[in-house]
Design a protein around this nucleic acid. Structure first.
Ligand code: ZN
Ligand code: ZN
Length: 654
DNA sequence: GCTAACGTTCGC
DNA sequence: GCGAACGTTAGC
């Protein structure tokens, strides 16, 4: 790679709602060796542009996913015709260069001293910078750089931006100045806390923190779902609906948390599966009560914590590298295709042949901002990237609303195959819509209505938000263009048949959540087929049930039965977990505490994916039991059963 | 509006 | 000087 790889770290292009700024490192001046200063379009923003004449080309940002790709695919149109077209590989095309350059008449922008700049790091209105508000994973990659699924199905990890083990909290000047997105996600935990305060319910029984209860190796789930009616009938309670606005969505920014960190192209150690980690600064806003003292992320694994489970975990768990992957961040493509405008990357069968072979979407938050057909039909599959933007007023909400094109089942399937070596039953996929419809029809009217209400709550808010914000956007894609956007792979696909399906926290004893979907409508409906168990977050002293309608919103509901819960909890708490199950139901397993962390993933369809990670010791499984079907998901059933048998807290019904 | 082509810029 | 690829525009 050449000069292009010595990509930009500075200046940063920061914009607020109303202003755009160019950020340079303190001490930098316009003639510093860090290079020229660019404005939001990457144009020189210093005296070189005084007079409104752009003199310099933009350069690749070096931080986006495509910029992390170091090799040409040699398959795409531009690669094939490189000599003539002289364009960069479609998989390497910087996200920020995909927007149409502004005309030369552009006026220069003010260069603001770093110390005076707002911390809000949002994209310029006319450039598809990832926004700080586009978040899917609460646990993004540690290095904050997007990764790309390479043709060989490996993840092309971008250079590590800062040393592993970087102490949390303010460290360097740079670190403190370039805070990660301040708006990361709805403060689910904060909501819990709030709710706790106003509606205190006692915790689940048992010593949640003493680890006396059986530990189950980390659980991961991919579907927090429940039929609403079922759930509601369980116990009346206040419901906190957490609409998932732009905050919880695919967020490239979460993968580039530090526009401002000197993170580009630095050497990185060769680490194993640097996927399940997150930068300290980007962890979800867990209240201290939720984050156990021993949850230092850097204790968790060599790369900053948050492994699904320890790398040397129990053997009965699938010994798959996938276990140490993060949940795939599913791009949210359609709703706000940020790119441009000149449709430089719009659908062009010549440039992007063979639509059915969409290459692997990036497992790390981006996927090509290219029409699926842009990708080469065979061979390497790069996951290039896109930056979702939510200024578009294109389809809001899930395909159920009839506003979004469905994700491509074909592509999803292929992606599954490519990424995980397993593929959902294609028939299932093909018929998923029908099944979804059936499922929906089977649902009670109340269920449907409630689910729709939940979605509508979000949709309304989101429409408002988007409509208010879209006006100041520059040249976003036309409606026509937007409909050219690549489909969104349904999140469930990425989880289907994944190792973590073995432990679907919320669906134990129920069918695994490995329901494949070729569109989010199916995901949504499918979600409603599931039933949630209760999770207990001990420090919050609440029982909370997290439910998603599978599309646009997540509801966190808290057990309102204070007295009942109190009694139960008190009983269990006093007696310890060892006494509370046998008397209740012969089929119950005692409260099970989870070793490691619990990953919760919910496909929100067009809105992206929400991923939560909870400390395992804060999550209990109640009335969970492992049936043969579920056990079959283990790669080593015998070992798993042995584990259960050995655990006095677990009851094994042979 | 869209793309192919290519002049040009840029970093090395 | 060279490779890479950005930006422009003619042509459709
Ligand atoms: Zn290529
Ligand atoms: Zn880039």
């Amino acid at each position: 790679m050449s000069a292009e790889d010595a990509s930009l770290q500075f200046p940063l292009h920061v914009s607020t709602e109303d202003e755009e700024f160019v950020i340079e490192k303190d001490g930098d001046d316009v003639t510093s060796p860090h290079g020229p200063q660019f404005d939001d379009q990457g144009f020189l923003s210093n005296e070189d542009q005084i007079g409104g004449v752009r003199l310099k080309r933009r350069r690749r940002c070096g931080q986006c996913g495509p910029c992390q790709v170091k090799e040409n695919c040699n398959k795409c149109h531009y690669c094939v015709r490189k000599d003539v077209l002289k364009q960069t590989c479609v998989y390497r095309k910087c996200v920020y260069l995909r927007s149409k350059p502004k005309p030369y008449s552009r006026q220069p922008k003010e260069v603001i001293p770093l110390s005076q700049r707002p911390l809000v790091n949002s994209p310029p209105t006319d450039v598809p910078r990832p926004t700080s508000q586009q978040v899917t994973s609460l646990f993004p990659d540690n290095n904050g750089l997007a990764k790309t699924l390479m043709p060989n199905n490996t993840v092309s990890s971008p250079p590590l931006p800062f040393p592993f083990g970087l102490p949390s909290g303010p460290t360097t000047q740079t670190e403190s100045k370039f805070k990660p997105p301040t708006s990361v996600a709805p403060d689910l935990f904060g909501s819990m806390c709030e709710h706790k305060g106003s509606n205190p319910t006692l915790s689940l029984s048992g010593p949640m923190n003493n680890h006396q209860s059986p530990l189950i190796p980390s659980l991961t789930n991919n579907s927090l779902t429940s039929p609403i009616s079922d759930f509601s009938s369980t116990f009346p309670r206040p419901s906190i609906h957490v609409p998932l606005p732009h905050s919880i969505r695919e967020s490239p920014l979460m993968h580039y948390p530090g526009y401002g960190r000197a993170m580009v192209n630095e050497a990185r150690p060769d680490i194993q599966s640097p996927c399940m980690y997150s930068p300290p600064s980007l962890r979800p806003p867990l209240p201290s009560s939720v984050s156990p003292m021993n949850m230092s992320p850097f204790d968790r694994n060599p790369v900053g914590g948050y492994l699904d489970r320890p790398p040397n975990g129990p053997t009965y768990l699938p010994n798959s590298p996938d276990l140490y992957r993060p949940f795939t961040s599913i791009p949210s493509a359609s709703p706000g295709y940020p790119y441009s405008t000149q449709s430089r990357f719009s659908h062009n069968a010549a440039v992007y042949p063979s639509a059915p072979s969409l290459p692997g979407y990036s497992g790390l938050g981006m996927h090509p901002s290219l029409h699926p057909s842009a990708m080469p039909s065979s061979g390497p599959h790069y996951g290039a990237f896109q930056t979702p933007s939510f200024t578009s007023n294109q389809s809001i909400g899930c395909p159920k609303n009839g506003q979004c094109p469905p994700a491509s089942q074909t592509l999803d399937t292929q992606l599954m195959q490519e990424r995980y070596g397993s593929t959902p039953n294609s028939k299932d996929n093909v018929s998923s819509k029908d099944k979804a419809k059936e499922s929906k029809n089977d649902s009670t009217t109340d269920e449907v209505e409630l689910a729709e209400q939940a979605r509508n709550v979000f949709n309304l808010a989101e429409r408002r938000r988007r409509s208010s914000s879209s006006s100041d956007c520059f040249d976003y894609s036309s409606r026509k263009d937007r409909y050219k956007l690549p489909p969104i792979p349904a999140a469930t696909l990425f989880c289907a048949n994944m190792p973590w399906d073995m432990f679907n926290v919320y669906n134990w004893s129920r069918r695994p959540a490995s329901v494949l979907s070729d569109d989010t409508s199916h995901a949504s409906v499918t979600s409603s087929d599931f039933e949630c168990d209760i999770i207990g977050i001990d420090d919050l002293q609440i029982n909370a049930m997290i439910r998603s309608d599978g599309c646009n919103s997540i509801a966190i509901e808290f057990d309102d039965r204070a007295s009942e819960t109190s009694g139960m909890s008190t009983k269990s708490g006093n007696t310890g977990s060892s006494q509370n199950s046998e008397n209740e139901c012969s089929t119950l397993v005692k409260k099970v505490y989870i070793q490691g962390s619990v990953h919760l993933k919910q496909d929100l369809g067009e809105e992206g994916i929400i991923q939560l990670e909870l400390p395992g010791n804060k999550v209990t499984l109640e009335e969970a039991y492992l049936d043969s079907e579920l056990a079959s998901y283990s790669c080593d059933v015998d070992e798993l059963l042995n584990f259960i048998r050995k655990e006095p807290e677990l009851i094994c019904f042979d």
